[in-house]
């Protein structure tokens, strides 16, 4: 009997995880796969779901007026809202990592604040910033003689406004990730580069960036996942479901389309199918990201090539194995 108890005990202890995992991960995933092959309005119980085969997928890929449009908008925002964060975050992290900067903790906190601020609050604040008549942004651009722009109403400016908010909100997050990565780079590398007389730029190009490649891969992957699911900012900035992302659906992202399909159109099957197509797209992008990262870090090829091209004086030696 005791033996049985001993056998069972570990399973009892780890069961909360499996129960939670099954209830909140496995079931919703399985249910959404089920729904993507069915027509269901969400009302009247699941018994009313009708099998639809691949109808939703073929409709979305070949007939739907919104699917590719929303994917295009999402990818645009991924490039100018999510990828651009890294162009700011890496230099910022390098500056914050510098011993010359005083009060680094204050800056770190300040950069991280937008991340922990709710998207709705952020969007409301930015609605005022982007206001055509009284907004801060038009005031600043007005100083340079630029005519006022209706940032959150004109179709060409809506994606720009959303991208600005996304950048503002998430640069701090990436900065902290890169900061953690920078602190793991051995200082000896920089010291040897100093002895060889390398300039600041050369050191960062030939040491910092190559050493950060795994972190960059991680951060970019997270950006792809987050960017392809972007919903809060466009939803709030363009006033919710009612306007479907504003003029010409300029802020109607793929995730927005999923939620609209469920909440407004009552098409749970179609919404689930969009989610799975989006998942496939994220998967493909992540593989591409990994291939690119591997190309640069594989066998130190990238580092050696960059080193050879830019600063032959630095010999980074065999310790630069980034795997």
């Amino acid at each position: 009997m005791r033996l049985n108890r001993q056998k069972i005990a570990p399973y009892v202890f780890i069961s909360p995880f499996f129960i939670v995992f099954a209830a909140f991960m496995v079931f919703p995933l399985g249910f959404s796969i089920f729904l993507s092959f069915h027509k269901w309005s969400g009302m009247g119980g699941i018994k009313t779901a009708q099998f639809a085969g691949l109808q939703h997928f073929s409709f979305l890929l070949f007939k739907d007026v919104y699917f590719w449009k929303t994917i295009g908008i999402t990818i645009w925002l991924l490039i100018f809202g999510s990828f651009t964060q890294h162009l700011f975050a890496i230099p910022l992290a390098i500056v914050l990592n510098s011993k010359l900067i005083r009060g680094r903790d204050i800056f770190r906190t300040a950069y991280f604040l937008p991340v922990i601020t709710s998207a709705v609050s952020v969007a409301i604040i930015f609605q005022n910033v982007f206001n055509m008549k009284y907004g801060l942004l038009n005031y600043i651009t007005g100083i340079f003689g630029v005519a006022p722009v209706d940032w959150i109403n004109w179709s060409w400016s809506i994606p720009i406004a959303i991208a600005i908010v996304i950048n503002w909100r998430w640069i701090g997050w990436n900065t902290l990730i890169y900061l953690a990565g920078l602190q793991a780079i051995p200082n000896e590398l920089y010291e040897s580069a100093d002895i060889d007389g390398a300039s600041l730029i050369t050191k960062h190009v030939n040491i910092t960036i190559p050493m950060l490649l795994p972190i960059i891969f991680f951060a970019v992957t997270m950006s792809i996942i987050g960017g392809m699911q972007i919903f809060d900012e466009p939803f709030v900035l363009t006033q919710g479901y009612l306007w479907m992302g504003g003029a010409n659906n300029a802020g109607f992202t793929a995730a927005f389309y999923i939620l609209w399909s469920l909440q407004r159109a009552g098409k749970y099957g179609r919404g689930s199918a969009i989610a799975w197509l989006l998942f496939l797209l994220v998967l493909i992008m992540t593989f591409i990201n990994r291939a690119i990262t591997n190309y640069y870090k594989g066998d130190n090829r990238g580092i050696k090539r960059v080193t050879a091209k830019k600063d032959k004086a630095i010999d980074i030696g065999p310790q630069m194995n980034l795997h």
Binding site: W243, A247, N248
Partner: peptide, 9 residues
């Protein structure tokens, strides 16, 4: 959305 297109765009 069509109203938005007419009015804003």
């Amino acid at each position: 959305n069509a109203i938005k297109a007419v009015v804003d765009d």
